[in-house]
Design a protein around this nucleic acid. Structure first.
Lengths: 234, 234
DNA sequence: ACCACTGTATGGTCAGACCATAGAACGCGA
DNA sequence: TCGCGTTCTATGGTCTGACCATACAGTGGT
């Protein structure tokens, strides 16, 4: 008697099956942000698995920023499809940094790449300057390193937002968020933030003037100012 | 009687507490890739929560590519710390693409940004050419669109690998993986892969010659060839 | 020294119970 | 009819205990 059925090398776990089924529904039924998934108990019955397996699958989707669960009753209750890639990316980066499977240098280099690209694009489109000005003024008023970094983050994320690319903007936000601690340290060590503010003004001026090359150069110099240990200047 | 205890707006769920505790241990105890976490039952007892909450936390960590669970007994069994950011990023991108909360254009643009950066860096360092040649030969031998895309992915990921930045390499692999379906479609629609191979050879030549600008231009032109609908050429 | 059997720790899953939450439905008084 | 407080109920969140599957460790026989 030959075993005609193919035996997978690794048995698919029940929650993985649930995951695949939910993803299939999203694609096939064209579900989009705001749509609701069936309740956990109903889903478990439909897919013939235990509720815990459904919950694990939903937990994965929540981690990936695709669903958001809310208890209670009403239109907002239950598992609702959302789009929050930021927190997933932030958690990913923070944990891998903590595990030392990523180095700070790699994260900052990535940020430099993104920001050069985004600043050049913003200069070409002359876009997003109002948000940049607002962040600049926020930094002027800041009285602590935390406050300064807060508005600094807003400034640099505004550059990424100006690109109009949501993926790149999300990556940028996550990069900033995951290195927030180090950024505050860096500002405190620097003491004087005037050199950083000068860099910000130079970036803004380049974008305003519509010169992509100068904008990219300004970003590079600014990061070298912010992280002198990572980018030793000649 | 004033309530001195601060009441959080949103009650932290048990599995989130577990998550935070595990992350704390990783950072404080300096745990790294290869180290084992306590068993689910033991962890549940230590943290005074149910095993299901521990499992949900571990599922999140597994989703983020930080732990890998293995049943059975022995040194490899249990929850082991790993470093697999790729699958997490791939799932993230694929799901958000399916949800239409990200557009293909944004993903391809991101890829273009990364690949220009990485190719320029590879040209400066004259690095990674052997892997590029191998992938090039693989594409010559390919007899189906799937096979071609397989080696094409290897070629472009090799460029990112040459950057030496693991984060950027991981993002690149995920970008390619999540658009694999569209890439196969694009190759099938194109029919003739010679123009793509010409592009590959031009990129390789630029890296080999150590000219970053030409490498970046070659990458840009190559992607325009591969996705003519996204990048209309004049 | 080798090998087959058994033991056991571990993850994977399920069923059922209970709690917390928050809108829905209801009912009552003005 | 309107307004408001009460109760109902669907939903997620959690715990417990049980059982299965897996794969190495230990054991004992050859």
């Amino acid at each position: 008697m030959t075993d005609t059925g193919w035996r997978p090398v690794k048995r698919t776990r029940a929650f993985e099956d649930v995951l695949a089924q939910i993803e299939r529904r999203i694609v096939e039924d064209g579900l989009t942000v705001g749509d609701r998934l069936p309740g956990e108990r109903q889903l478990a019955e439909q897919l013939q698995v235990g509720r815990s397996s459904v919950r694990e699958a939903l937990r994965v989707l929540e981690t990936l920023g695709v669903v958001s669960s809310q208890a209670g009753r009403g239109p907002d209750a239950g598992a609702v499809l959302t789009s929050r890639p930021d927190s997933a990316l932030t958690d990913l980066l923070r944990l891998h940094l903590g595990l030392a499977s990523l180095e700070l240098r790699e994260v900052i280099d990535t940020r430099l790449m993104i920001e050069r690209w985004a600043a050049a694009g913003a200069a070409t489109a002359r876009a997003g300057t109002t948000a940049l000005v607002a962040a600049l003024e926020g930094m002027e008023r800041a009285r602590t390193a935390e406050e300064f970094v807060e508005h600094d983050t807003a400034f640099h994320c505004a550059i990424a937002d100006a690109s109009g690319n949501r993926l790149i903007a999300a990556i940028m936000r996550s990069l900033r968020e995951s290195v927030r601690r180090y950024a505050i340290e860096a500002v405190e060590q620097l003491g004087d933030t005037r050199v950083l503010q000068d860099g910000h003004r130079r970036i803004l001026a380049a974008i305003d003037a519509g010169s992509p090359e100068e904008a990219a150069r300004a970003v590079t110099d600014h990061l070298a100012d912010a992280y002198p240990t990572l980018f030793p200047r000649p």
